Simulated assay, not measured.
Amino acid sequence: MPIPAPDDARFLEDILANRCNRAILDAWEALELEDGWLVAGCLFQTIWNLRDGRAPGHGIKDYDIFYFDAADLSVAGEARVQQRVDRVLGPLGVPVEVKNQARVHLWYEEHFGYPYPQLASAKEGIDRFLIPSTCVGVRWLGGRHELYVPNGLSILYAGVLTPNPLTCHLPLFREKAASYKSRWEWLQVCEEA
């Protein structure tokens, strides 16, 4: 019998099995983030951990939050948002990293060695993760969870790792894919999208 395709309800149920994801989203309104999203590893690694029968939060080193504030591109402004998030989520006892997607183009090339375009939203930052199956985000908005999965959920649940044509930096992709594959051996790495 074929396995049914994953849907938004399953994804939401799975990521909320991670107590930290749940706690962050439960406190979302108190974070007061402009165009804010809980993103990346804390979501897709939870999915992969569940598939392996591990605890949902196993090995997740931090929880990433994107927001977008084009009015303040300063390091100090981002630090103030980080401090506010730390005050709210500090009792959770896990590292939470907050990044303003409006300023990534100012530091990305120096840090990673590749140019990066100026973005117009936090979603555009999610779109540019190195691996399309990891382009996922969630937030609490208007009394419900809103998901952003621009490449669909099937490749995430299947564990398919391909380079993202929006950020096709093959050395960075290979490093990241090898790191993931060392932790979840069943992942499939393919350099051709």
Rank of each mutant, 00 (worst) to 15 (best):
G59D: 12
G59N: 14
I60F: 01
Y63T: 05
I65V: 15
Y67T: 06
F68V: 07
A70R: 13
A70H: 13
A71S: 15
L73V: 08
L73C: 08
S74L: 09
V75T: 10
V75H: 13
A76K: 13
A76V: 12
E78R: 13
A79E: 14
R80V: 04
V81W: 00
V81H: 02
V81N: 04
Q83W: 05
R84G: 09
R84C: 03
V85G: 10
V85C: 13
G93N: 09
G93A: 12
V94M: 03
V94H: 01
P95T: 13
V96P: 00
V96C: 07
V98F: 00
K99V: 10
K99C: 13
N100Y: 01
Q101N: 10
R103F: 02
H105P: 01
H105A: 10
L106H: 03
Y108P: 01
Y108H: 13
E109G: 10
E110I: 03
Y114I: 04
P115W: 10
P115L: 11
Y116R: 11
P117M: 06
P117D: 07
Q118R: 15
F129G: 01
I131M: 12
I131H: 09
P132I: 01
P132G: 02
T134P: 03
V138W: 00
V138G: 00
W140S: 04
R144T: 02
E146K: 00
P150C: 10
P150F: 11
N151Q: 10
G152K: 13
G152E: 05
I155H: 12
L156R: 04
A158Y: 03
G159S: 06
V160T: 06
L161D: 02
P163L: 11
P163A: 12
N164C: 07
L166H: 12
T167N: 11
L172K: 11
L172S: 13
E175W: 09
E175Q: 13
E175S: 12
E175A: 12
A177T: 10
S179T: 11
Y180E: 03
